[in-house]
């Protein structure tokens, strides 16, 4: 196969509003990882002032979590302006990572602590309810298993010739930190992103965490998620190249000693 120059645009949605939990780290990792893989990558900041067409020009989408007031501003902009384009991008297999508040927006609705209903974009078949101020927020370290994601990469393997090191088999545990008042419930036949091993996940009850829809991932894991869980960054980049170029990008084996140790600190704390 002829070698071609890959070029990816990383669309960062509402960077100065939805960026409360160190979410910039995810963008830093995606850009740096692209560079290491020889992929030219540009980060496009898509805020209130930018046109909604910039969403359609993005090859990977990212949106982080925020505080209530900022979320209100963003929710309005999404429902009135950018939501349709975000929906069509996700439906067209553009890979995306949506954390916490962003994840909740993409569902059908969010019921606030005082019972108000806020419409979501209904891209994901799920809803979120805050059970009220007398219930605790779900806060703490979280460890999840991602067997389902590995499955998805196996699908990719069938479609293209993928190097085996691309498979996520690194003990298949991801670690992060969660902090959310809302409890999320998935619709029928919806695939969760991961299974909770320690922590709360979607609702603290059914052991599901996040959602996996087309090539988009919604999750409560911040920390931020990508620096320690580098497999997921590679996965999003591969999916983006496959969607855009119908090619499979070679992933070189890298030295991940710091990432593995960082994960082990949390895994040992709760699982040993």
């Amino acid at each position: 196969m002829k070698k071609i120059d890959y070029y990816l645009t990383i669309g960062w949605l509402y960077p100065d509003l939805m960026s409360t939990y160190g979410d910039r780290g995810n963008i830093i990792v995606l850009s740096k990882r692209c560079e290491e893989l020889g992929i030219k990558a540009d980060v496009k900041r898509i805020g209130l002032e930018q046109d909604k067409k910039e969403i359609l020009e993005s090859d990977i989408l990212f949106m982080g979590g925020a505080q209530d007031k900022q979320q209100e501003i963003v929710n309005k902009d999404l429902l009135e302006k950018k939501g349709n384009n975000l929906k069509s991008a996700i439906e067209n297999n553009v890979p995306g990572l949506f954390i916490c508040g962003a994840y909740q927006f993409l569902g059908r609705y969010y019921k606030t602590a005082d019972g108000m209903m806020i419409d979501g974009l209904s891209i994901f078949d799920l809803y979120t309810e805050n059970p009220g101020i007398h219930n605790n927020r779900l806060i703490g370290d979280i460890i999840v298993r991602i067997d389902d994601l590995r499955f998805k990469i196996n699908d990719l393997k069938k479609e293209g010739n993928i190097h085996k090191s691309n498979l996520i088999n690194h003990k298949s545990l991801l670690v992060g930190f969660e902090n959310h008042g809302g409890r999320t419930y998935l619709g029928k036949n919806i695939e969760p992103f991961a299974k909770v091993i320690h922590g709360y996940g979607n609702n603290g009850g059914d052991k599901t965490e996040g959602i996996f829809y087309k090539n988009a991932i919604g999750t409560y894991l911040h920390g931020p998620i990508l620096p320690k869980n580098w497999e997921l960054a590679d996965f999003l980049i591969q999916k983006a190249i496959f969607t855009k170029y119908n090619r499979v990008v070679e992933i070189k084996d890298e030295n991940h000693v710091l990432e593995d140790e960082a994960k082990q600190v949390i895994v040992r704390r709760y699982l040993s």
């Binding site: 160190g22 979410d23 910039r24 780290g25 806060i139 902090n179 920390g223």
Partner: peptide, 9 residues
């Protein structure tokens, strides 16, 4: 604080 995400800010 138990959450260290902020180091990325």
């Amino acid at each position: 604080g138990r959450d260290i995400s902020w180091i990325w800010d």
